[in-house]
Design a protein around this nucleic acid. Structure first.
Lengths: 141, 141
DNA sequence: ATTATTGTAACTAAAACGGTTACAGTAAAT
DNA sequence: ATTTACTGTAACCGTTTTAGTTACAATAAT
């Protein structure tokens, strides 16, 4: 089981826009051919990134541009923008039997730890900005 | 998107076995009625927990028993035993276009951070043992 | 033998994803 | 004003994964 590829697609998209927005017109077709997915997938991703205020998109004439400072966008912000995980990462869902001492108490015993684990992961994502990635990428280009 | 409920089902199962193994016969039906899932789901879970060396199961006569010290089983061990995540949590899968400077380099720029985030989550799971949960649960019972 | 239970295969239904087609709406260029 | 290129979005598909379920042979205790 894996988290949807929307996160990596979104990061890839934002990197393209950040690095190339003054050089090429960043249409969904252009981006799609770098990411190697269907252009509609990119348009869907761009809609989410636009809703989050990260990019502007020109309908009609075409092309995406950054709408927010790359140093003010973290991986966590992107992860949230594209709905990688809704609410909790782990599935607490079960309806344990309240007539059983374990069933009745498992949530209060377990959920906190799972939440802490998720938060640890998300905090790492918060510690990296798109700007960090852009600078590393520019060194390699 | 959420991680499979197998982890919470497995923890629930192990807690039942730890707490009640000298009190009740822990059949798949008994466990299933506490967790509130189908008994076959429990049998499948128990098979994985047995393969990991956490429990013994009596075929025929029935019942599960702990096979390993609860203080030597972490949440991460259980998470691994029931195959919550195969390999990487995030989907790097894409085949980015090697002819594009971004496509060619995104893996080297991004993968490390995602791996670090996953590790942070897993390290939290490693810091909690089944024994911790058992003791907390016993206080509440 | 009878009974209860495990171990496992097989099938089903539901959910999520990415892929794809299609097309109306929009803006720029000519 | 028409053409062109592109966005925005709906609709549908195929795949994969999951949990639910039925069924039944194998096993062990009574």
């Amino acid at each position: 089981m894996k988290i949807t590829s929307r996160l990596t697609v979104a990061v890839h998209t934002l990197l393209l826009v950040s690095v190339f927005e003054n050089k090429y017109k960043l249409t969904s077709d252009f981006i799609a051919s770098s990411v190697n997915v269907n252009p509609v997938v990119i348009r869907r991703t761009l809609q989410k990134l636009k809703a989050a205020g990260f990019v502007n998109i020109k309908p009609g004439s075409g092309g995406a541009a950054m709408a927010k400072d790359v140093d003010k966008i973290t991986l966590y912000d992107i992860y949230t923008a594209v709905d990688c995980v809704e609410g909790s990462l782990f599935n607490f869902h079960e309806n344990p039997n309240p007539d059983c001492p374990v069933g009745r108490n498992i949530h209060s015993v377990l959920d906190g730890y799972l939440h802490t684990a998720q938060t640890a992961m998300e905090d790492e994502l918060k510690s990296v900005t798109l700007g960090d990635l852009v600078r590393q990428l520019n060194k390699k280009i």
